[in-house]
């Protein structure tokens, strides 16, 4: 029974408009770019259009926008301490961008932008670059204290510093891979479980057990919605924790 299912096909980029080539790379406006701008549009609709009235007693959409604002604000404050307000636009944008892209990816037939590691890696790199640039700008070489934990005996220091440097370098990688892998694996699993349903139906008597993968794919869909929200939150929280290093290097 060779039913072919291609769970990878959904991640393919489809160029909509091509703008020629740069160094052998085609610069095309793909559906991925369309989803990115759609996400920006949705976020702007929620946070700008819905708050246009500036009502003291908020409407439904305005209170959703306020809820997100206060949620991200408190997450950032708890993770990065005082002085972290300056990073609110960055963390808020990151959280909303990842959340809306993840959620858009859950729409049937839609494309999950965050399933491409280059996108998540670029976002992670943006966070780490911000940490490094702001850290050196605010503290000069004092920022290097982030690799030298206080209260460590001298003979242990070389090892600890080496570990700290490795952990610092692995941060953008883990940040990027966590989001990318969660979205990618979830969509693949969903596609495979859903694909079992028509495969079993086509296999004669085996069709009897086809409700099983159907129920499973419903459950996995619910789980993927959870993962979509949770990963956006994890990304924002970890970014806040890394930014707290830039704010308070001597931890």
């Amino acid at each position: 029974m060779a039913v072919k299912m291609d769970p990878i096909h959904q991640f393919e980029l489809k160029p909509l408009v091509s703008f020629g080539h740069i160094g052998g790379q085609e610069i095309a406006f793909t559906q991925s770019a369309l989803y990115m701008f759609a996400a920006v549009g949705i976020i702007a609709l929620l946070t700008i259009v819905a708050t246009a009235n500036r009502s003291v007693v908020p409407g439904r959409m305005q209170s959703v926008a306020e809820m997100f604002y206060e949620f991200i604000g408190s997450t950032l404050r708890q993770s990065a301490g005082h002085g972290s307000e300056r990073f609110m636009p960055l963390i808020f944008s990151l959280f909303m961008f990842v959340l809306v892209l993840n959620m858009l990816g859950m729409v049937p037939y839609a494309f999950a932008v965050t399933s491409h590691i280059i996108v998540t890696f670029a976002l992670a790199l943006l966070v780490i670059t911000t940490v490094i640039v702001y850290g050196f700008m605010a503290h000069g070489t004092g920022f290097l204290k982030v690799f030298v934990p206080s209260g460590v005996p001298g003979w242990l220091m070389p090892m600890i510093v080496a570990i700290e440097i490795v952990s610092f370098i692995s941060r953008p990688i883990s940040l990027a891979v966590r989001l990318f892998a969660n979205v990618l694996a979830g969509h693949i699993a969903l596609k495979i479980f859903a694909g079992f349903v028509p495969a079993l139906l086509a296999a004669g008597a085996w069709g009897v057990i086809s409700p099983l993968p159907l129920a499973l794919s419903v459950a996995v869909t619910a789980l993927e919605f959870l993962v979509a929200g949770l990963q956006a939150y994890v990304f924002a929280t970890l970014a806040s924790i890394y930014l707290s290093d830039a704010l308070h290097p001597g931890h």
């Binding site: 980029l13 790379q25 920006v40 700008i48």
Partner: peptide, 27 residues
């Protein structure tokens, strides 16, 4: 495997930079 096809990276980065830059500016 589409996520690892490096010839799409530059275009994705450009659009990401534009979209996220716009989002950051608006926010």
């Amino acid at each position: 495997f589409p996520p690892f096809e490096s010839h799409t990276f530059l275009a994705q980065l450009i659009w990401l930079a534009l979209a996220f830059g716009l989002l950051y500016y608006l926010m």
